[in-house]
């Protein structure tokens, strides 16, 4: 059992605040992804959980024990580093065995565990090599095997796939998901790649500027962004936004059409819709097509609505040319609204 509790964790480097009072609970055996743009504090939060950095404020609990004053080795964690940190002076075998030897496990046990995890990561034929004789992908596998061999309560990973080429990344991603699901560990995984986050996570914590903006399941984060940032960060292409103002009969005026808005909304709101939730029909938003990008099954149409950039993912049967006038109707149940002041979602 290793539930992770993060209570009011803040971190400052001198006058710069990297994390503002983070609260987060990660359930036992959950796969939590920390997702956010570069510099938003993902690594800092992960390192605080690992004990490689101490929080300026707040508490970290792992498996019911407060750990923020403990050194990393007493926290029951294992970590996969971004640059792998596979020891160059040790063979693959000794790298995987490193933590086990520190725990003073008997040699037979070390041997079983090294062989088992090496097999799991498909590196059993590399055990005698040094890391200088491995490819990036193989080194990555060693780093994961070293963490798994510890049979830790918690595995922390900082962008473990970011140094691999696209194809290898895809392969490792699927493999990691399978291996970690079977290992019954709680996983915290840092990435700035939203596709990776979506495909791996039980829950995603979207971070921005040292805050956690939303922590929810991948579909929830995608469908119901809690804040404008989430909608604009997640999804490729991201959400479309247009200003909206309440008119006399309580509906919202969006670029020339009136839509039913949230009952609790103020006089001004921001209308949001995902590009794939638009259809061509009469009475929609008037758009002027600018760029047409056929993507096979769909065509991405970048247009202008009311002078603002607006994207639609449409069926590729549709014939459009730059300069065409389109009428784009948003699917009513997919329309989202944000408060322009707080940028939070309004329901």
């Amino acid at each position: 059992m290793a539930e992770i509790l993060i209570k009011g964790v803040a971190k400052s480097f001198g006058s710069f605040t990297a994390l503002h009072s983070i609260d987060l609970t990660i359930a036992d055996q959950e796969f939590m992804v920390l997702l956010g743009a570069s510099g938003c504090g993902k690594t800092t939060l992960l390192r605080i959980i690992a004990g490689l950095e101490s929080p300026t404020q707040g508490e970290v609990w792992i498996g019911g024990k407060r750990v923020d004053q403990l050194p990393p080795r007493e926290r029951g964690i294992a970590m996969v580093f971004q640059n792998y940190a596979v020891f160059p002076h040790l063979t693959v075998y000794e790298n995987i065995a490193f933590g086990l030897r520190m725990k003073k496990l008997p040699q037979a046990e070390v041997d079983t565990r090294v062989k088992r995890t090496a097999e799991l990561m498909h590196i059993e034929q590399l055990l005698k090599r040094y890391s200088g004789q491995l490819s990036g992908g193989q080194r990555q596998r060693v780093a994961v095997a070293r963490a798994l061999a510890m049979e830790p309560d918690v595995i922390l990973m900082d962008e473990p796939l970011s140094n691999l080429d696209a194809l290898l990344r895809l392969e490792m991603r699927a493999e990691l998901k399978g291996v970690l699901a079977n290992s019954k560990t709680t996983t915290i995984y840092v990435t700035h790649d939203q596709v990776e986050a979506m495909s791996l996570a039980d829950r995603i914590s979207v971070m921005n500027g040292g805050h956690i903006v939303q922590a929810a399941s991948p579909v929830e984060v995608y469908r119901n962004p809690a804040a404008r940032f989430v909608g604009s960060f997640i999804g490729n292409p991201p959400m479309n936004f247009l200003p909206a103002a309440r008119n006399g009969d309580g509906r919202y005026q969006v670029a020339g059409i009136a839509l039913d808005g949230p009952s609790s909304g103020g006089a001004k709101l921001e209308f949001a819709i995902r590009p794939e939730d638009l259809t061509i029909a009469a009475g929609g938003l008037k758009a002027t097509a600018r760029v047409i990008e056929p993507l096979g099954a769909h065509t991405l149409v970048t247009s202008e609505v009311d002078g603002k950039l607006f994207r639609a993912v449409l069926d590729s049967d549709l014939k459009v040319a730059p300069g065409d006038e389109l009428s784009l109707v948003p699917k009513p149940d997919r329309v989202r609204w944000f408060d322009p002041e707080t940028t939070r979602a309004v329901n």
Binding site: A50, L52, P71, P72, R73, A78, A85, F87
Partner: peptide
């Protein structure tokens, strides 16, 4: 010696002395 190796050793259970023996000395060879 990159800092990451010390951090890896620390996470995987090495105290200060072990880090010296298992990371510093061999990498300083």
């Amino acid at each position: 010696i990159p800092k990451e190796y010390y951090e890896a050793a620390e996470v995987f259970g090495a105290g200060p002395w072990k880090r010296f023996v298992k990371v510093t000395l061999p990498m300083l060879k």
